[in-house]
Design a protein around this nucleic acid. Sequence first.
DNA 1: TATTACTTTCAGATAGTTCTGAAAGTTGAT
DNA 2: ATCAACTTTCAGAACTATCTGAAAGTAATA
Lengths: 181, 181
Amino acid sequence: MSKKAAPETKATEAGWEQSREEFIAQWGALGSHWGINRTMAQIHALLITAPAPMHTEAVMERLGISRGNANTNLRELIGWGLVRLVVKKGERREYFEAEKDVWKMFIIIARERKRRELDPALAVLRQCAEQTRAEKAGPGREFHAQMKELQEFVEFGMKVSDTVSSMKHASALQWAMRLLS
Amino acid sequence: MSKKAAPETKATEAGWEQSREEFIAQWGALGSHWGINRTMAQIHALLITAPAPMHTEAVMERLGISRGNANTNLRELIGWGLVRLVVKKGERREYFEAEKDVWKMFIIIARERKRRELDPALAVLRQCAEQTRAEKAGPGREFHAQMKELQEFVEFGMKVSDTVSSMKHASALQWAMRLLS
DNA sequence: TATTACTTTCAGATAGTTCTGAAAGTTGAT
DNA sequence: ATCAACTTTCAGAACTATCTGAAAGTAATA
């Protein structure tokens, strides 16, 4: 009875484990739409629903993926700050644990997406606006105006995003409540 | 002098056309990070900076892409509502024109992303929360709580997004200003 | 120093996405 | 009904992203 799995891990819980399976699979599929790769999203889903930290081997087995794949995507998740490395004393291998607080997750993802999607866009817009500043009339002027407008819009959006993501959950909630009412 | 291009289209404007080239190329590259395909983003960039509506042939030539590709992506852009079909009387072929208002563009994109990214996520969460409602204790209960929490968070975010994207530009601006100060 | 228990890397394989171009379809004019 | 001018479709080609697995790397222990 003590050879492989922990005593209560397999027998009792068919119920929620089945939902969990579903959640992992679907979350993975959604990852694609979110610009996150499928495996990474699946590992994330697996870890946020894990009752305890898991090691690489366990992740590999649970999702049926290769060691290389598991390793790369775990590192990537750590890079995002969505997963932490946990060392258990007396153990060599590394365990992984996901950030479970929803608001923190949201902020992390929002920041990262801003960095990857908005920052480079802004750079392009600024450059284009700059280069055409001298245009005095005609389509050149129009183009300049448009780049400028886009640039300002993006900058504005970024400010809003920064403000929100530096709020504590409670104050964000309060603020949003006011908006909705 | 009247055979092909409008009189001032080619001679004067090397300057802004070069920036425009840059904008189109970079915007296309960014499209990938945005979950939009490169060609679609390029066509969009081309059209929002076009002084006048363009037809398929012109788009193909300007971007060096095939007819099939141009056609498919133009339709897709129309599907998003980012591009309108324009018919010129006395002409058979279809011209295309992009929505240039930044706020309108933003709303269209926000709605579409919500539809593609949030709606399906919500469906998964609801289902998972529902299926584990009966869990009374242990990891199953934890899982249920987590799905519920995520579900509520997403629902809340959707409400905020709906509220914002039904605002007129001016009131959104005013609202955001208050937030930032 | 050698061994063991892990982690990391990366070349090539696989899977997924996008593009081409030619053929088929449509529409309006004659 | 036929034609010319366009638009749409789609099978296969080209490209891109992701994954595998085995080899190389690392670090603790004896």
